[in-house]
């Protein structure tokens, strides 16, 4: 018997499980009663009603800030941001308030919220609907940052996010929500800070996460066909991140290629690369998007994507060099 469903439905079913378990979990955001724009809230309104699945005005500051206020009185809000670009009107509430209430109030308060942020390059979506910004939030003390790339990881990390007391910024790969997978068995909680090895190899370490992963997987298969075995790690969470697994792999292969969707300058790939450089003798390279806004026309937009061929070429250069 199969259970072929979309990643969006996996997210919705996982959240429903957790809402049944914990009556303090509730959802607020735009259009969540309709199931969300990626079906990631499908069926929740029908099961839990308007008190726990709250349709909000298009008012990002208050969606984020009200979530915090509700957390400060003991509930566990799931704050839906629709897409990453819309976090910007709520950045004060996330960065100045949510990330800091526990610290600046000396431990009196917890902001136990999960901020769900569909992110990533999305064809034809241009400069304000296609950004990749998870790196920004790694720079903010107080926040946990998750960025899964598979349905099983999304489910497992979402469970962990809903059960922990820290604020979690939960980036979801929006171009992959409609991907289907056969989701047999349980979808257990996955701890933060543990990378997943997608392929084992001895020649070159490839580190990636989120929407860059499918290209990295394809590239690793192509490399293998050409006799280059890549050790491919999916970080899954960026704070905390699994530096131990990355450093161990880099020490073994002596070469580490960091592959990041989104602007490279000051991006999280730089953090990974410098950590490898500081703690190992491995050679390091980075692939990332150029520092331009995401353009619209397909020929222009293409320069932002990390394609499998680019990863293959970079890895081969490293192995040859």
């Amino acid at each position: 018997m199969s259970n072929v469903i979309t990643m969006g439905e996996v997210a919705a079913r996982t959240l429903a499980d957790e809402m049944r378990r914990d009556p303090t979990i509730w959802v607020l955001g735009e259009d969540v009663q309709a199931g969300g724009i990626f079906a990631q809230y499908k069926g929740l309104f029908q099961e839990f009603g308007a008190a726990r699945v709250v349709n909000t005005p298009i008012a990002e500051s208050t969606i984020m800030g009200a979530g915090l206020g509700a957390a400060l009185v003991g509930t566990r809000p799931v704050i839906e941001m629709r897409i990453a670009d819309f976090v910007m009107p709520a950045i004060d509430e996330l960065v100045n308030q949510i990330a800091k209430v526990r610290y600046m109030f000396g431990g009196q308060a917890r902001a136990s919220v999960v901020v769900r942020v569909p992110h990533g390059l999305h064809p034809g979506s241009a400069a304000q609907h296609s950004q990749v910004i998870e790196s920004w939030f790694v720079n903010v003390p107080g926040l946990v940052v998750a960025a899964p790339s598979t349905a099983l990881d999304l489910a497992g990390l979402l469970r962990t996010a809903l059960r922990c007391d820290d604020p979690v910024v939960f980036f979801e790969p929006k171009a992959m929500f409609k991907n289907v997978a056969d989701m047999l068995g349980d979808w257990p909680a996955i701890p933060f800070g543990k990378a997943e090895r997608r392929r084992e190899g001895k020649d070159v370490t490839i580190v990636s996460w989120a929407q860059a992963m499918p290209a990295a997987i394809e590239a690793a298969a192509a490399l293998s066909a050409d006799g280059v075995e890549a050790d491919l790690l999916d970080l899954r969470t960026l704070w905390p991140w699994d530096s131990e697994a990355v450093l161990a792999s880099a020490a073994r292969t002596g070469r580490a290629l960091v592959v990041q969707e989104g602007v490279g300058a000051s991006g999280f790939g730089a953090e990974v690369a410098v950590t490898i450089a500081e703690h190992s003798a491995a050679r390091v390279r980075r692939l990332a998007s150029p520092r331009i806004p995401v353009p619209f026309a397909p020929t222009l937009e293409d320069v932002c994507f990390i394609r499998p061929g680019m990863i293959v070429a970079a890895a081969k250069e490293m192995v040859a060099g």
Binding site: R52, T62, G65, A66, G69, E93
Partner: peptide, 21 residues
């Protein structure tokens, strides 16, 4: 709150959370 108007969204959310309880 060090941010002008920073307490306003928090206040409405606190009221919403209290209602849920």
């Amino acid at each position: 709150n060090g941010i002008v108007a920073g307490g306003i969204p928090i206040a409405v959310g606190a009221a919403q959370g209290l209602r849920l309880f």
